[in-house]
Amino acid sequence: MKPILKAINVQKVFGVKGNVYKALEDINLEIQEGEFVGIMGPSGAGKSTLLNILSTIDVPSSGDIIIDDQNIIQMTEEQLSDFRRNKLGFIFQDYNLLDTLTVKENIVLPLALSKVPAKEIEERVNVVADTFGIGEILDKYPYHISGGQKQRTAASRAIVANPSLILADEPTGALDSKSATDLLESLSSLNDKNKSTIMMVTHDVYAASFAKRVLFIKDGRIFTEIHKGQMSRKEFFRTILDILASLGGSDHDVI
């Protein structure tokens, strides 16, 4: 297995001289191809900052980030856009679907931007739609479908271009438990079958228990990490809960 993502000594400082706030301090992490990594931590721990930096939307104050053997720190704005388009897939808490496009067109968008031929687009969209079970609603507009369907559409869009890394930011945050489970199971099977690499930021223990490895962040540093290994999902769930308790935070976040 080769590493897909490497973060080396990443720091992020906000504010000006005399009044600085360190959001991230000395983050080092590595994600291997085919992994499903969860990132947890209490509110304000720096999860979102980390995700924004890894997804190239924000830049770190210092440190290096290497994704698929490319150092994204030295890239220009245009290269970054192309990089996001070709190497990364995003799933956001609030879906971020374009409401002027149908479900199908939303999924088509990344492929169209990469100028993939129409015929190939058609095939790939159909395959992805089957994976997430949204074949029925392809011609509907986002405002006509449920939150769960929206998130599955967003997930379809994220993986349709075969990205090296899928980044999910609280993907279940706005979903009811049934939709959340469906989505997490889809992601999990995607990881198992297609060997997709997934990194998911969440503060929902249930969602995190679907990952194979969970990193805990506190006050801008990586606090600890645990592997699922041979544990069942339930056991893993409990382990995560224990660590969170020792982290001294978010018990109230548990479902």
Binding site: S55, I57, E77, E78, L80, S81, D82, F83, R84, R85, N86, L88, F90, F92, N96, L97, L98, D99, T100, L109, P110, L113, R157
Partner: peptide, 15 residues
């Protein structure tokens, strides 16, 4: 908001 989404999924400023 729409353009923010586009920016996130990799549409560059020129486009």
């Amino acid at each position: 908001e729409r353009y923010e989404i586009l920016h996130k999924i990799g549409v560059n400023k020129k486009e």
